[in-house]
């Protein structure tokens, strides 16, 4: 892992399009500002991990039970409304 020491207001550039700036440090928390192209996704790690986990669960490994879903929905949807 590359370790850099930066003061508040200083920046780090990553590749051609991404800039990270240290905005402030208070207590045990660091505020960072990011400038990045639109196609670069910036996420808190725990959010990224949660979404990746749900995406993987949603990926179909079997389509047999998908057909049942529509009929279950029809049944359930009609009683719900």
């Amino acid at each position: 892992m590359l370790v850099l020491t930066r003061k508040v207001g200083e920046q780090v550039r990553i590749g051609d399009g991404v800039t990270v700036r240290v905005l402030g440090v208070r207590g045990g928390q660091v505020s960072l500002g990011f400038i990045a192209p639109k196609d670069v996704r910036l996420l808190r790690e725990e959010v990224s991990v949660a979404i990746e986990r749900e995406n993987r669960k949603a990926a179909l490994d079997d389509v047999d039970h998908v057909g049942r879903l529509a009929s279950l929905w029809k049944e359930y949807g009609s009683t719900k409304k």
Binding site: I51, E52, N55, R56
Partner: peptide
């Protein structure tokens, strides 16, 4: 950007395999 955790998966199509169902592939 595509689906988180699926780099390289960019082009998709929606398939309507059960007309009238709110669920698509």
């Amino acid at each position: 950007p595509g689906l988180v955790g699926f780099p390289g998966a960019h082009r998709f199509v929606l398939l309507d395999r059960d007309a009238g169902s709110p669920f698509k592939w």
